Amino acid sequence: MKRNIRVKEAAHYIGLSKSTLDKLRHFGGGPRYYKLGRAVVYDTEDLDAWKAERARTETWNGANDNSRAARAA
C-alpha cells in the first residue's frame, strides 16, 4: 500500500537513523523524496525500491582487489 511519510518515520521504515537519512538526502545517494513547502516527504514505494536496489548476496564485489579470484591466486 502506497503512502507518504515524514523523515523520522521513513528512516525507521528502512532501518536507518534519521541523521543518516538526512545526510543521504543532503549529500546524495538516498531514496527519492518530495519537498512540500518546508516538509520532506517520502513515498513508501520509493523507499522499498531504494532498499531493494541495495540487496546483496555476498560482501565481496568483483571490482575489489581482494576478490575471491585474487585471493585464490
Rank of each mutant, 00 (worst) to 15 (best):
D48S: 07
A11N: 05
F27A: 13
Y42F: 14
A55G: 11
W50D: 03
R32C: 12
I5K: 02
Y13G: 05
A11V: 03
V40I: 12
D48C: 04
L16G: 05
R56H: 12
A10V: 01
E45T: 03
E9F: 01
T20W: 13
A72T: 01
P31L: 08
K51W: 12
E53N: 11
Y33C: 06
R6E: 11
A11I: 07
D65T: 00
A63W: 08
R68I: 05
A49L: 05
R25T: 06
R3L: 10
K8V: 02
I5G: 00
K2W: 02
V41Q: 07
S19D: 15
K23Y: 14
S19G: 12
L47F: 05
T59F: 11
I14V: 14
D48Y: 06
L16C: 06
N61A: 04
A63V: 09
I14S: 02
D46R: 04
A10W: 00
Y42S: 02
K23C: 09
H26K: 15
Y42V: 04
N61C: 13
T57W: 14
L21W: 01
N64M: 08
R38P: 00
V7K: 03
G62P: 02
G62L: 12
F27Q: 14
D43E: 09
K51D: 06
M1Q: 15
A70C: 05
R38Y: 13
R32V: 10
W60Q: 11
R3P: 00
R56N: 10
K23N: 10
A63T: 08
G28H: 07
G15Q: 06
R56Y: 09
E9R: 00
D65W: 11
N4V: 10
E53T: 03
D48F: 08
A39K: 11
A63K: 13
L16N: 02
N64A: 10
W60I: 13
D43W: 02
D48H: 07
R68D: 09
W60H: 14
I14T: 00
A72Q: 11
L47K: 04
Y42G: 01
R68M: 07
H12P: 01
W50V: 01
W50P: 02
T57P: 00
R56V: 15
L36P: 03
Y13R: 04
H26G: 04
R54Y: 05
G29L: 09
M1E: 13
R71F: 04
Y42P: 00
A63F: 06
R6W: 07
D46G: 02
S67Y: 06
N4S: 10
A63N: 13
L47H: 05
D48K: 05
F27D: 14
V41G: 01
K2D: 09
L24A: 09
R32I: 03
E9H: 00
H26D: 14
T20C: 14
W60Y: 12
Y34D: 11
W60T: 07
T57A: 09
A52E: 13
N61Q: 14
L16P: 01
E53F: 05
